[in-house]
Design a protein around this nucleic acid. Structure first.
Lengths: 364, 364
DNA sequence: CTGAAAGCGCTAACAT
DNA sequence: ATGTTAGCGCTTTCAG
């Protein structure tokens, strides 16, 4: 069953006794064709099983109808999800018992892909995905450029100068970060999320110092979160509260977090541990358990990210959920916007996050 | 900064003082061009930032260089993963403590996407993904047909007759199931996996009957798994062992599994519960705990699927991990195969699964 | 080794 | 309302 040659507009046209222009019209602007011929053409299309050739369309119409998504090395998500209004309020979901059944939590990339996919198809675009790792990143980006009308690029998946070069050629939105030279970006509100989280922790913790596991200093996310942390602390102090804090830079790995927490526990007895990421928070949880310090009674703990383990740990971990599906949705919208108006103002969206209250910070 | 018109082969040609044919040659078959002109052309390409237009290429070369992946309503995965040889041995991984740190476990679709993506790009194809839900499925499939050289379709994401129609036009591989009319398919070895799992359970369980939560009868996967279960039981009996079994059909939901298990526990005291899916197994675990039956001492439990929760439950759940990344990889390979030879023999790959031994079935 | 030229299938003026 | 026609940018014989 060798795939036979696909029928073209010419086949449809002659079969329906019209010109190819008319065939094209019934496909693109049916209103311009009389109902009778429209029906005749449509019948021919169905009979022949005609499917328009996207390459020819793309060439003639100088648009591909495809948007690209470039991710770093691994993953991508795509699960059922309600849109998240692009306001600035921090949503609060009580998930003390870890039963908050958002089916696609944590699946960071999967959610992002899903969001882009939903948004792209509903805008009439197909979605091409690629991760800049298998092949030289530059090759992939380059290849993508010739295939799409716009590009969503995950921050850091490819060097900034390459992003800048591509951004000069086509609409490009950076997600989960920024890139010099790319006008548009969509990310979550890291600092606002951490500030809200810290505020919550400060309200829940017993008396004593706050330990902050900061993550790598070369990560923009980590820096933003830390800034939110400091803001909340400053606020509390301004309100007359005396808060002692210990800043602990780590490389962002759970191992480092574990080692650092253990070390600290030998010197101090923290009343709260806040980590810039969930794995580190979970590591801290483990270190505290080792030390016989009970969570949340003697020390509260909180993370950032919303990974699945945070929901299933014991105690379950209070954390911040990142609306990646929305990031994807908005990134594509940004693309459409710029596709419609190349000179639109640059946008740097910061989507609000959700605080997930769980056992590690005590009763909600 | 309005995106300016992209340079074409003509621009490169005139800039390098050659014909467009030569430009095309340095891109497609560099060997046919003398080194000096090749360098000259390459310099022009770099200087102009020329990127070939995929639509024009697709039209002229009558191949798009794109493969499509059609998924059902939701999700898609994509995580780091080692290739899985397509043999027929059931891999066994001891994961009693739930620390088996495969980063992409459970992420069913994500892994599939990832596999397709890896495989497609390494074969020189881009990957277009779509899920047949937002828009009418038929529209998506149709649209996809005009854009790609081959299609991977998740079983059930679109009606079989549509799949058959598309399969007549282009190489199409069905994954995670079969579809009438599509010659090629790639899925996991459900029956072999369940057979191995059951064998393991039979060896580990205390004396007493085996409960099998079968899942929905209209699911081909569920039927295959049940067949594997029966095969293992028959084997044990043939070996002279006396095994009592209780078959319990469910609708595949955890709720049904919970209710059924509770009901059964009022009448019988099983020594083992095997479920055709992880959520059901976890539900059974809960029902057993309620009834004060200790797992694995008094009753062992096993699931199928390898979801994340199975790793994090207490006790951790023995289950079968499905190599979805490999399914994706092989699906794309199948496509390539048929792209190369439209009359190749049909293939129905059954990829081997891994048994994850955990606490719910006692010490490994 | 290189150039000329004929499409690939479709869209979008421009005619009629 | 419908037909004619000129490309869109690239690949690929076919000559030279």
């Amino acid at each position: 069953m060798a795939p036979r040659k696909a029928p073209t507009v010419y086949d449809v046209a002659s079969s329906a006794g019209v010109s190819i222009a008319t065939v094209s019209r019934v496909l693109r602007s049916p209103a311009k064709v009389s109902e009778s011929t429209r029906d005749r053409v449509q019948r021919a299309i169905d009979a022949l099983g005609y499917v328009p050739n996207a390459s020819a369309r793309g060439l003639a119409g100088r648009r591909t109808g495809v948007l690209g998504l470039l991710l770093p090395g691994p993953a991508d998500p795509l699960a059922a999800h309600a849109d998240h209004a692009a306001g600035s309020e921090v949503g609060v979901i009580d998930d003390t018992d870890g039963s908050y059944a958002d089916p696609d939590r944590n699946r960071y990339f999967e959610q992002l892909v899903r969001g882009c996919e939903i948004s792209a198809w509903s805008a009439g675009y197909a979605l091409l995905i690629a991760s800049g790792q298998h092949l030289a990143r530059t090759v992939v980006l380059h290849d993508l450029e010739g295939r799409v009308d716009g590009l969503v690029v995950f921050a850091g998946s490819v060097p900034d100068d390459l992003i800048a070069r591509s951004a000069r050629r086509l609409p490009l939105a950076v997600v989960a970060g920024r890139a010099e030279g790319a006008p548009d970006s969509v990310r979550v509100d890291d600092s606002g999320g951490m500030e809200a989280l810290t505020r919550h922790v400060l309200a829940a913790k017993p008396p004593g110092p706050v330990l902050y596991l900061a993550g790598p200093a070369d990560s923009a996310d980590a820096r933003d979160r830390e800034q939110g942390f400091h803001a909340a602390i400053a606020d509390a102090r301004a309100a007359g509260r005396d808060v002692e804090r210990h800043l602990v830079p780590t490389d962002g790995t759970a191992e480092a977090a574990l080692a650092e927490t253990r070390r600290i526990l030998r010197e101090t007895r923290p009343a709260a541990v806040i980590a810039a990421d969930d794995p580190s928070a979970l590591a801290a949880l483990a270190a505290l358990e080792e030390a016989g310090i009970s969570v949340p009674d003697q020390c509260v703990v909180a993370g950032f990210g919303g990974v699945e383990e945070a929901r299933l740990s014991r105690p379950t971990l209070t954390t911040v959920r990142q609306p990646m599906t929305d990031v994807g949705i908005h990134a594509v919208r940004t693309l459409q916007r710029r596709l419609a108006d190349a000179d639109a103002d640059p946008v740097d969206l910061r989507l609000p996050v959700d605080l997930l209250l769980r056992q590690s910070c005590g009763p909600a």
